[in-house]
Simulated assay, not measured.
Amino acid sequence: MYKNILQNMDNIAVWPVISFVIFFLFFLCLLWWVFTTDRKIIDKLKHLPMEEGQSNLSTTKPE
C-alpha cells in the first residue's frame, strides 16, 4: 500500500536531493565554524567540564 502512495506522488525524486543539500550545507557550516573559531574559545570549552572547584554533585544529604 505504501509503495503505491509513493509511486503516485509527483516530483518524489526531489526530496532526496533537498535532504542531501540540507545535510551538505550543515556540514559545510560546521567545518567553517571549526576552522574559524578562535583557539582560546576551543581551549575554554575543552576544559569546561573538568574545571577544579566546581562540582556537579548535589551538596544536600539524601534523607
Results as ranks from 00 to 15, higher is better:
L48G: 08
M9Q: 06
L25G: 02
I12M: 01
V14T: 03
K46H: 10
T59Q: 09
I5Q: 08
L45H: 08
P16V: 03
K61I: 02
D43V: 05
T37A: 11
V14D: 01
S55A: 02
L45V: 12
N8I: 04
D43Q: 13
T59C: 01
N4R: 14
V17S: 02
H47G: 10
V34T: 14
C29A: 11
M9T: 06
A13K: 07
P62G: 00
I41T: 12
S58H: 11
I22R: 00
V17M: 03
N56E: 00
P16G: 01
L28I: 07
T60Q: 10
L31Y: 13
W32E: 07
P49A: 05
E51Q: 10
T36N: 14
N4Y: 08
P49M: 04
D10F: 10
Q54D: 03
T37I: 14
M9H: 01
F20G: 10
I5A: 10
S55C: 04
L45S: 05
E63P: 11
I41F: 08
A13D: 12
F26A: 14
D43S: 09
F27M: 09
I42Y: 01
H47T: 10
K44H: 09
W33K: 15
C29L: 15
T59K: 08
S19L: 06
T59I: 04
N56C: 00
F23C: 15
F24C: 08
I22H: 02
H47R: 10
M1E: 13
F27K: 03
M9W: 01
N56M: 00
K44S: 07
D43F: 08
F20S: 09
C29W: 13
K61F: 04
F35R: 15
C29K: 11
A13T: 04
M1Y: 09
Q7P: 02
P16N: 03
L30H: 15
L6I: 11
W15F: 13
R39E: 14
K40G: 02
S55G: 04
T60F: 12
I41M: 07
L57K: 13
F20Y: 11
L45K: 13
Q7H: 08
Q7V: 05
W15A: 06
I5E: 08
Y2I: 08
K44D: 12
K61D: 00
V21F: 01
L28M: 12
K46I: 04
E52L: 03
Q54V: 13
F26R: 13
L6R: 05
V21A: 00
F26E: 04
I5G: 02
N11Y: 14
W15S: 03
L25Q: 02
Q54E: 06
W33L: 15
L30F: 15
I18C: 02
F35A: 01
Q54S: 07
D43T: 07
L45M: 14
V34K: 12
R39L: 10
H47D: 14
M50L: 06
I22V: 12
C29P: 04
E63W: 03
N11K: 08
D38G: 00
L48A: 15
F26W: 14
W33F: 15
A13C: 01
P16R: 12
F24T: 11
M1L: 12
L28K: 11
I42E: 02
V21E: 00
I41W: 06
N8A: 15
T37N: 09
L48S: 11
P49K: 06
F27N: 03
M1W: 09
I22Q: 04
M1D: 09
T36C: 07
